[in-house]
Design a protein around this nucleic acid. Structure first.
Lengths: 347, 347
DNA sequence: CCGACTGCTGAAAACGATTGCAGAGTTTCA
DNA sequence: TGAAACTCTGCAATCGTTTTCAGCAGTCGG
């Protein structure tokens, strides 16, 4: 029922080869013929069968994307970038969710390998050995997980952390807490690396955790952080930071008057929290687009292409950070008269 | 380089036909041969080329999914359901995001049609005529948008609204406001349909809007709602409800002591808001799974399958709704002494 | 003992595209 | 004018699979 290249050829009165060339290699056929063929193809609504094409060319015209968890708002943002860039390059996108499971992720790549020209792995959860085995199954581009000389898009998280540190230093903070995410994760390592900058700025950092990188993890971590003698809390990501904010509100600790809170990722919710969360924004959309560029280059064999793309992070200053009015120390008496310092908003 | 059916045949000392049958139609080959072939195939790591198979069977083994906007937390939840169910049925999933644009959506279906066996449209943004034209391009299953006798998964939003109304009635509310979402949207229509139930319960409903179904829309709507003489605010969705919550907090209106707030969707953030939001939960994961079931049935031509699947909604009572302590009326004096009614939490 | 039947296997024709090769025109140049 | 060079187009092979059809061997009934 669908219109094939044969139909077009018959209708246009030429051979299938000519049709194929008219559409794919314009310079190989006479201009008049080309126009005629193209017109006929359009009139019939011909669209080449990609499976058939793939069979002979060995290319599928598809890209695969694997994310650890779709319900983590961090990934849809990347996905949108991948989507739009892939569409522009005339690739379709296969999506799979590995449920934070490295083995599942490896299996998915394996299953996808034959149906795609390459795969983009977002924040891969695979173990190094799994990853090592997976490389070579198909063209791979990693996001946020550099491995040897594998093409990758990485975000300069350490740089982002340095911005955060400088921001807090400038405000006058001298003692801060960092709430760790999953200890093994590359992102967590990078944040800690950036934290070393704090020492050079004469700031004392207390590392707590690891905690679950979730809202609940933040609730949990908040109490521990309050028990430390710090004036600012830097959370592994925004979800945790939101948890911290929530817990502090419950305990009637004023943010940012008494404690400043800072997150990572700039998820959509960050700007809507009370107070709006100061956070380190990642360029997720651009990361997705860059990954597609890298992958397309890799596929087309243009080894001239760069192998690694590093994206800057950007501190977004909102209302959850301010100059430390006073250090928080020890448990607070619930009924203590609140000092209504105006919240220094807008900084 | 990849191992083909020919390789397996040669290695096993049989013909390609036999290999094909051994793997796909076990009853057509002798048990001993089958085992031998299967063993050889596994040993060589053979995986059939789906493009080649698709060429002859006319089936691709792929499903397409189109969502209006990935960054809307409502859709990833559905997507996860689609994912896992599709994987179980041995289908791969093509994903596309139409950026809330009906024309784009139609174009995407068109582009996908040849590469998939069927498409799932989540909350389609197409106009009726666009949709009408799209039906027939490929097998189509709709989520949250019933059209004629097209197979669809729909959520009983009206029923959910009735639960919400009953909940508020039981608490003693008599005057509520409903903040509309996009007026043309099916979801909005359904919520309004459910609202008619309020009349039968002797409750007065003020409909406001339409507003943008976003956090900002909620900020906007909150002020208008406060100007009405109501004790509860029902928002089109959770994002709006969160906006309302935020705005009310800014204006120092206590929720739920002074006004109850209620949302729809139960997005992950709803439970993390302060106060945690009472909301009508949709079974997104199940909706996704059901859509895949419907689509697979449709594809396999088993017309015996049901055409429409209706899923119940479930009111999740959290802390943003309570008995109306007093009606809100007129602008509040900012410095008025707060009556610290304990927030009746847990209801 | 022969024919029909059954159960299993292999040869070959598809599916829809791309592409190397060769042939048919047309132009160029001696 | 003839041959060479060059353009353009068609034929046919090819990709990896499924599926139809036919064939072979063995079994069973008569």
């Amino acid at each position: 029922m669908p219109v094939t290249i044969q139909d077009v050829a018959r209708e246009a009165g030429v051979s299938v080869s000519t049709v194929s060339r008219a559409l794919a290699a314009p310079e190989m056929v006479r201009e008049a013929t080309r126009l005629h063929v193209v017109e006929t193809a359009n009139r019939l609504g011909y669209r080449p069968n990609r499976a058939a094409r793939g069979l002979i060319t060995g290319k599928t015209g598809n890209l695969g994307v694997i994310v650890p968890d779709l319900s983590n708002p961090f990934f849809p943002a990347i996905l949108k970038g991948i989507q739009s860039q892939a569409r522009g390059a005339d690739y379709a996108v296969f999506l799979a969710d590995c449920d934070e499971n490295g083995a599942e992720e490896a299996a998915l790549v394996q299953a996808m390998a034959k149906q795609v020209d390459g795969v983009i792995l977002c924040s891969s959860r695979m173990s190094p050995s799994q990853l090592e085995r997976t490389i070579g199954l198909t063209s791979l581009v990693l996001i946020n997980r550099p491995v040897r000389d594998q093409p990758a898009v990485i975000m300069d998280v350490a740089g982002g952390m340095r911005q955060a540190v400088d921001h807090l230093t400038a405000l006058g903070h001298r003692r801060i807490a960092y709430l760790q995410g999953p200890r093994a994760s590359w992102s967590n390592q990078q944040r800690r690396r950036g934290l070393r900058h704090a020492g050079r700025r004469g700031m004392a950092v207390t590392e707590l955790g690891p905690f679950a990188p979730t809202f609940e993890g933040g609730l949990h971590a908040a109490d521990l952080a309050l028990a430390e003698d710090v004036t600012a809390i830097v959370a592994y990501n925004d979800l945790m930071a939101l948890g911290v904010l929530s817990r502090l509100a419950d305990r009637e600790v004023k943010v940012p008057a008494e404690v400043s809170v800072l997150g990572f990722d700039d998820v959509p919710m960050a700007g809507m929290a009370t107070p709006p969360l100061t956070t380190v924004a990642m360029q997720n959309g651009r990361a997705g687009r860059a990954a597609v560029d890298l992958l397309v280059n890799l596929i087309s064999g243009a080894d001239a292409g760069e192998l690694r793309r590093e994206l800057e992070c950007q501190l977004i200053v909102r209302a959850s950070t301010a100059t430390p009015r006073e250090a928080w120390s020890g448990p607070r008496q619930v009924a203590a008269p609140a000092r209504h310092g105006e919240p220094t908003e807008g900084l």
